[in-house]
Structures are given as structure tokens and as C-alpha cells.
């Protein structure tokens, strides 16, 4: 197995007495969709927050292509190639859809001191933004205010903003939540197209989508990763069935 693009080693995160993430390790490889599933409160979002640098881990390491980036703050990790989406749409509602993506793309070439330049003239960010909108199917809504988009399109926009930053690793926190079947199909097809170039971490509650599209699945329960394997292995794992999938007899 080649070296992981992004790797977590023994990640622990405590909030006071609560252990939200307990000794979780996982590898993200280019060309694979790695899904993390688990009940609400299992620590999935906390894990994404630690990987993206929004939260500090209490213990453990995060490695980007073998380099220890545990101490990097979030913006530096983002510039290093970690793109993320949030469980709740996190966009710029009062800007146009296009400007949302252009601003995300501008992060790659910030030109902090170029005060005499027109931001709209930056060919790099304009190109990346148009590209991202094409890929996510939002090109027709480019001039709309992002806050006026229907919910599903906001989710798509967030992925578009991720892509506009040209990440190598995508950390997606429930990208399909609240999407209609057509939009879901579109995003899943996009993920399949993106995985050739990217390592993708997918936190998702839609089990059909997860088992149909993930190459590797990690199951989290109460902060711990209790199983990791292919969809077939996970489906057959009695521990997982017991803890999460609920296939066994209901004993409550």
C-alpha cells in the first residue's frame, strides 16, 4: 500500500471529562472514498474538525504525505491541500454564487498587499471558480445570491468552494444531508469522478450512498473506531451489526 495522503495516528480529543474521539487512526489514499459512519455523537464531526485543524487533538498525530502537520493551524492546512465542507452549510450568503467560489479560489493566491488590483481581474481565481461551478452543476446559478439558493444547491456550492481551493484531500461532513434523489446522484457521481485525483473522507448518514460508493468504511461508536474494512466486510461484521446497523434482534 502506498503512503497515505492524509493519515491520523491515535487521535484523542477530550472535552472536559468526555472523550469525544478515542484513539482513532485512519489512512486516506488518493483514489479511494473512505467513509466514516456512526450514530449521532460518535465523534465523526469532531474527527473532521481535528483533521482539518479547526480543533486541536488532545493526543495523536495528523500526517500529510508523511509530514507531521499536527501543529499547523487550520488556514495553513487548507493551503496545504485539505478542503472541507461542514455539516451545516457554511457559505457567504450575501455574496453571489460565483463570488463564493472566487473567494475560495483566491485563498490559493491571496496577494495580500496588491491593494491597487481588482480582485475580479485575477485570472487564476476566476478560472478556478468557473471550473468548480461547472463540475458541481451550478454554472447556471453563478449570479444568484448564495443565500437564496435552495438547500440542496447550497450543499453543492460548499463542495464547489472546496474544489475551487484545489485541495488534494476532501473532508466532507454529511454532504448529502437534505438533498433530493437527483442531487444526491449528481454529487455521488462527482465524488466518483473526483476520487481519481483526491483522497476523500465522507461522513454520511445515507447508508445506501455509503455502501454503494465507499471503498473503505470506518465505523465509530462512542468516539472509538470499532471496525474498518470494505463495505462487504463491514456488512458482515457482527460487532458493527450489533452496535450500529441494528440488524440484530432488538433487545431494548
Amino acid at each position: 500500500m502506498p503512503e497515505a495522503l492524509l493519515a491520523a495516528r491515535g487521535i484523542v480529543r477530550r472535552f472536559g471529562g468526555l472523550v469525544a474521539v478515542n484513539d482513532v487512526s485512519l489512512d486516506l489514499h488518493r483514489g479511494t472514498v473512505h467513509a466514516v459512519i456512526g450514530t449521532n455523537g460518535a465523534g465523526k464531526s469532531t474527527l473532521i474538525n481535528i483533521l482539518s485543524g479547526e480543533l486541536q487533538a488532545s493526543a495523536g498525530q495528523v500526517l500529510l504525505e508523511g509530514r507531521d502537520i499536527t501543529a499547523w493551524p487550520q488556514p495553513q492546512r487548507a493551503r496545504g491541500g485539505l478542503g472541507r465542507s461542514y455539516q451545516r452549510s457554511t457559505i457567504f450568503p450575501t455574496l453571489s454564487v460565483y463570488e463564493n467560489c472566487r473567494l475560495a479560489a483566491q485563498a490559493g493566491r491571496q496577494r495580500f498587499w496588491h491593494w491597487w488590483r481588482d480582485a475580479a481581474d485575477c485570472a487564476h481565481s476566476a478560472g478556478q471558480a468557473r471550473d468548480a461551478l461547472e463540475r458541481t452543476g451550478l454554472a447556471a446559478s453563478a449570479a444568484t445570491l448564495a443565500g437564496l439558493l435552495p438547500h440542496g444547491h447550497k450543499r453543492q456550492l460548499e463542495i464547489a468552494m472546496c474544489l475551487a481551493g484545489q485541495p488534494r484531500v476532501l473532508l466532507l461532513d454529511e454532504p448529502l444531508a437534505g438533498m433530493g434523489p437527483e442531487e444526491t446522484e449528481r454529487i455521488l457521481a462527482l465524488l466518483q469522478a473526483l476520487k481519481a485525483e483526491h483522497a476523500i473522507l465522507l461522513v454520511e448518514h445515507d447508508m445506501d450512498a455509503v455502501f454503494g460508493n465507499a471503498d473503505t468504511i470506518t465505523v465509530m461508536v462512542n468516539g472509538s473506531a470499532i471496525a474498518c474494512g470494505t463495505p462487504a466486510q463491514i456488512r458482515a461484521n457482527p460487532q458493527v451489526q450489533d452496535a450500529y446497523l441494528g440488524d440484530g434482534p432488538c433487545t431494548h
Partner: peptide
């Protein structure tokens, strides 16, 4: 508008 998103963007 959204500082969290700006940090996430880099």
C-alpha cells in the same frame, strides 16, 4: 460574512 469559512478556505 463568515470567518469560519475563510479559515477553512485557507
Amino acid at each position: 460574512i463568515n470567518e469560519q469559512r475563510m479559515r477553512a478556505a485557507g
